[in-house]
């Protein structure tokens, strides 16, 4: 399913899309595929595969640690493509989240081509702003990959409009001024930011990320956003589990709880 179809379907069901993030190759290539499939089976509508990078400046400690483990275990960019292919084959909608340098190194057009061939529908770029994105936008258009840029509570109206106009598929609203990682409460800046995006473009689906980790928080965000993006809380299920089987049990349980949340389910 494309990103647009995924958001349309959720809208028809009067709920938000649940986007679950997991680093490729964490802790190994096969294990990360199993984690992502478990997430998809347990209620994640979109699997956001994060390409592990040595210098992830937008990520908090959990994703940094998971990425370091994946890199230490030898994950390569081409493994990320393999993982995307395996997960898409199960019918899940897959987007990639990646810092820019690995893409530039691979070759921007070649990456867009291979990403599309692997079955990904979109790519999120946390450290590529549209101002520097001409080559990526052209390659993504050519190969039919949706492109998601980030907007922030600090974005001016002018930048916000420019960024939303550069997105296709959905726009990623960072709920707070900070890095990834679950927080105890949902940011108060998020509803206003979503409102500002809607004023700029009423039709662009908005996914909200940073700081969401429980079903109750997912329900809170789902009340005003089209998509709820969860990373660190899911990754922690695997990172902190005594073994992978336990990790996957926890991952399924949390995915189900979050899925209930985006359906406005009773907070637990």
């Amino acid at each position: 399913m494309s990103i647009a179809e995924t958001f349309a379907k959720a809208k028809a069901e009067d709920r938000s899309v649940l986007v679950g993030c997991m680093p490729a190759g964490f802790p190994t290539v096969d294990d990360s595929i199993a984690s992502m499939v478990a997430m998809a089976e347990s209620g994640c509508d979109v699997i956001e595969v994060e390409l592990p990078y040595s210098d992830p400046v937008m990520d908090g400690p959990v994703i940094q640690k998971a990425s370091d483990i994946a890199l230490a275990n030898g994950v390569r960019s081409r493994d990320t493509l393999k993982i995307i292919e395996a997960v898409s084959r199960t019918g899940a909608t897959v987007v990639l989240m990646t810092y820019w340098n690995p893409i530039e190194k691979y070759g921007v057009d070649a990456w867009a081509r291979d990403l599309a061939a692997a079955g990904a529908t979109g790519m999120i770029t946390p450290d590529l702003i549209p101002d520097e994105g001409a080559e990526w936008i052209a390659a993504a258009d050519k190969h039919g990959i949706d492109r998601t840029f980030l907007v922030s509570p600090s974005s001016t109206d002018e930048r916000l409009a420019m960024t939303v106009a550069s997105c296709r598929g959905f726009v990623y609203a960072t709920a707070l001024m900070g890095v990834t990682g679950a927080r105890t409460s949902v940011s108060s800046q998020a509803p206003e930011l979503v409102e500002r995006i809607r004023r700029a473009d009423p039709h662009m689906p908005v996914g909200v990320g940073l700081g969401v980790g429980t079903g109750a928080q997912a329900a809170e965000v789902a009340a005003f956003a089209d998509g709820v993006i969860v990373g660190s809380a899911l990754i922690r299920c695997v990172l902190e589990a005594p073994d992978l089987a336990t990790g996957h049990d926890r991952l399924r349980a949390l995915s189900a709880e979050l899925a209930e949340g985006v359906r406005g389910g009773a907070p637990r």
Binding site: V57, M58, W100, P126, D127, L128, I129, D131, E132, F149, L150, V151, S152, P153, S154, S155, T156, R159, T163, T174, M177
Partner: peptide
Amino acid sequence: MAGHFGKYGGRFVPEALVKAL
């Protein structure tokens, strides 16, 4: 104007920092 020295330089940062820059 955009901070480029030929093809070098520029701004490859999270959007959250652009306003401060």
